[in-house]
Design a binder for these strands. Structure first.
Lengths: 214, 214
DNA sequence: CCATTGATTGAATGAGCATTCAGTGAAATT
DNA sequence: AATTTCACTGAATGCTCATTCAATCAATGG
């Protein structure tokens, strides 16, 4: 049907593609491989096979295997950060709505599919001895935690709540985020994203009954 | 000073030791290595060097490297389970005390030193693709979660609390346990075991004001 | 003492893997 | 059409590592 006209059909994959496309393909394949085989079981041969590309391409587009892994982590982190950041940028939202948006982003299916959770925890597993993983991760985590604390502070003022300490609450929220993630990875039958959101909102409703209803 | 009398000084390490001792030595060394280099960076050469034993001993006392890793995980899990189980076995404790004991065991220094946390998360990182790790871990986790739910149920009856759902609370506690562990590993300066216990107790005090005081 | 048993040693083996690089081929430029 | 450029290929290289095993050594029993 189609001749060699390259305009009409984008399905014809050309032998060569822009670097950005290749890098994205390789990062995608890396996510798939890590989720299937873990970081230690992820080989460049496996990644390139998964991506349908040839072995040498990784070291052509990335400095090393290590660089590929780091960029994979950064990609996941940026995707997550984008999602909650976009969600709270709207000026018409109140503090409680923004807090809810952050919670919902944390458990959004795009962010915490089993596949991606497996990758996150594969990296957390290495983070114990790899400062670089910890440092990158931490920037976004600290940012989010501070924003949550700020929102809590605002809610406390609005509702004239006594007792709750915004830093403690944001620390606890952070722990609940990671903890539900781990439990969703380990026991997907018992722990779901919807249930996690509900539990965190229940927690917030207990603290701020005037701002959240379960 | 000391001659070759083997009675008085137990410091003289004999060339040979009972299998249980060697196994324990190797498991200890494995914990150290994993915390330093991660699971992928842990080699039998490294483990035996750390233990001051010779390379071949691992495959003499364990079926394989994999068996060594599995038994290391089991050892950690059993140590933790023993601690909280012993703590709640006393009949004179009320439900709230037992719940507190479980929380304190979770963040006991012996259980969640940075070193051991690094090992736990190294295993969690592999758990995504290794059913065997998930399965073993899960037995104790589910057991603990059910006991927590039972204790909550008892507290709810005692205090005639309305609203809180024991299963939800125990799920949230489980998430807080794991989440604080991860944050203690990643940000030891911000997250400490003491603070984690305090936060969990604050959570419980909000739910059960008659049973817990912050 | 000698023999036997069982723990211990570490060199040798072989498999797996990241990385390199000389070469291929297709597009872009002349 | 010839040349240059650049993405791409995959065999070859050299290293690391788990596992094996023949030899060693110490204790125990005869």
């Amino acid at each position: 049907m189609t001749a060699t006209t390259r305009k009409s059909d984008k399905e014809k994959k050309p032998r060569t593609a822009p670097a950005e496309v290749r890098r994205a393909q390789l990062i995608d394949a890396t996510i798939t491989c890590i989720s299937k085989y873990g970081i230690s079981g992820t080989t460049l041969t496996g990644v390139t096979k998964e991506a349908g590309l040839s072995l040498g391409l990784v070291n052509f587009h990335f400095k090393s295997k290590d660089a590929l892994l780091t960029e994979t982590l950064n990609t996941l982190a940026a995707e997550h950060r984008d999602l909650w950041m976009k969600a709270i940028e709207r000026d018409d939202l109140g503090a409680a709505d923004k807090l809810t948006a952050i919670v919902e982003a944390q458990f959004h299916p795009r962010i915490c599919s089993r596949k991606k959770l497996a990758v996150w925890f594969a990296f957390f597993g290495e983070a114990g001895h790899r400062k670089s993983y910890r440092e990158h991760s931490s920037r976004f985590d600290i940012e989010r935690q501070e924003i949550c604390a700020g929102l809590c502070r605002q809610i406390i003022v609005e509702g004239a709540y006594t007792g709750p300490d915004p830093e403690g609450i944001s620390m606890t929220m952070e722990a609940m985020f990671d903890g539900f993630w781990l439990n969703m990875l380990m026991y997907p039958a018992t722990f779901t994203g919807k249930a996690a959101v509900a539990q965190v909102r229940t927690y917030l409703a207990t603290l701020f009954p005037g701002h959240f209803n379960v």
